[in-house]
């Protein structure tokens, strides 16, 4: 994480240029209808919007899980549309970290193994993986829980394991989808504090949420409506567009 802000890396972590995503469900549905957005490196962005506004589609595109129908999604200076499926998976593995509402930990792997899982697919040796995973678990305050299975952990602990896993490959961006949706108020603030802490350390954060107080932790809020950016709210008070 400490090297996230080094000079050799591009200033823009993710950029979207007039991105459209159309699903053919009987008649075409425009999930995203011309979205342009730049996520600077080291920024903390929240994306808000009602159901069906295109939040999930945007997440999938930025997370290299999907490709746009038109327009360009550039992650870490690579246009996702130019990549093969395999290269896209590699980019996702190394440059995107996911945090999900339902934690999505592997049920039969303990905390340490869950955190180390992305590095397994990167071909990093077992010893290095475990060192890195232990370090991150200690940073999220779970150094004493590394041998526990997910079902032996509380919701907040699970989400902290998920956050550690998202960070393990030193990604260009961390994508969190309703990260506090399944947490009570107290653990929610613990997790959001950790987000802030890692952001402070230079990690680029994108949080998708429908809760205002979660979004307000970010530097800016992108409001989506009907597949378009309704407005971008800079939380230092200035409003663009």
């Amino acid at each position: 994480m400490s090297n996230t802000g080094t000079i050799s890396e591009p200033e823009i972590a993710v950029s979207l240029e007039d991105v459209r995503k159309t699903y053919q469900l009987g008649e075409p549905v425009h999930a995203l209808d011309g979205v342009s957005l730049e996520i600077p490196r080291g920024s903390y962005t929240a994306i808000m919007g009602p159901s069906g506004s295109g939040k999930s589609t945007l997440m999938n595109l930025v997370g290299c899980l999907d490709t746009p129908t038109a327009g360009a999604v550039v992650v870490d200076d690579k246009d996702v549309r130019d990549l093969s499926s395999r290269e896209r998976t590699r980019l996702r593995g190394s440059e995107v970290g996911f945090v999900f509402q339902t934690f999505n930990l592997m049920p039969r792997l303990n905390a340490l193994e869950n955190v180390a899982l992305p590095q397994l697919f990167q071909g990093i040796s077992r010893g290095d993986r475990r060192d890195r995973a232990r370090e991150l678990l200690e940073r999220v305050g779970l150094g004493d829980r590394i041998d526990h299975l997910p079902n032996e952990l509380s919701g907040g602990q699970r989400q902290r394991v998920a956050l550690a896993r998202a960070l393990v490959n030193d990604p260009a961006i961390v994508l969190a989808d309703e990260p506090s949706g399944n947490l009570d108020t107290e653990t929610e603030s613990q997790v959001l504090d950790l987000f802030a802490e890692f952001h402070g350390g230079g990690t680029t954060m994108i949080v998708v949420t429908h809760e205002r107080h979660v979004a307000e932790r970010a530097e800016r809020i992108v409001h989506l409506l009907d597949g378009k950016i309704e407005r971008i709210e800079e939380l230092d008070g200035v409003e663009e567009k």
């Binding site: 996911f98 049920p107 992305p118 697919f121």
Partner: peptide
């Protein structure tokens, strides 16, 4: 299925 989704999200290739 969900586990497969998780693995793919964190960078598992099809062949993995």
């Amino acid at each position: 299925t969900r586990e497969i989704g998780i693995m793919k999200a964190v960078g598992a290739q099809n062949r993995d």
